[in-house]
C-alpha cells in the first residue's frame, strides 16, 4: 500500500520566528488589521510504501526525529493518508 505523507515542520513555542514576526508587522500596512499569531514553517510531502498505517507512522516519526526536524528547536505534525488502490 502507498501512503501519502505530509510533514509540517513548526518551530517549538518560544523559538524565534523572525519571518512570522516580519509578516505580521507588514500586514497592517496593507490594511489587514487584527491578524495575529503568524508563524512560518516548512511543508514536506512524500510517499511511503508500507503494510499498515501504524508502522508507516512509526517510520515517519523516526525520520522526522532524526532528519526532517531538529528536535531542539522544531516539532513535526505528520498527516498520513492511504492512497487509493489502482483498479484495473
Amino acid at each position: 500500500m502507498t501512503f501519502s505523507i505530509h510533514v509540517e515542520v513548526r518551530l517549538r513555542p518560544g523559538i524565534a520566528d523572525p519571518q512570522g514576526a516580519t509578516i505580521e508587522r507588514a500586514l497592517p500596512t496593507l490594511g489587514f488589521d487584527g491578524v495575529s499569531g503568524v508563524s512560518v514553517g516548512k511543508s514536506i510531502r512524500f510517499e511511503v510504501e508500507g503494510t499498515d498505517e501504524a508502522s508507516v507512522r512509526a517510520q515517519v516519526d523516526d525520520l522526522c526525529d532524526r532528519f526532517l526536524t531538529n528536535p531542539v528547536i522544531e516539532e513535526a505534525v505528520v498527516t498520513i493518508e492511504q492512497l487509493e488502490q489502482a483498479t484495473s
Binding site: 518551530l11 524565534a16 523572525p18
Partner: peptide, 11 residues
C-alpha cells in the same frame, strides 16, 4: 549539544 536558532533581534 544544543542548536542555533535565528537571532532574537530578527536581523
Amino acid at each position: 549539544p544544543g542548536a542555533l536558532q535565528k537571532n532574537a533581534g530578527l536581523k
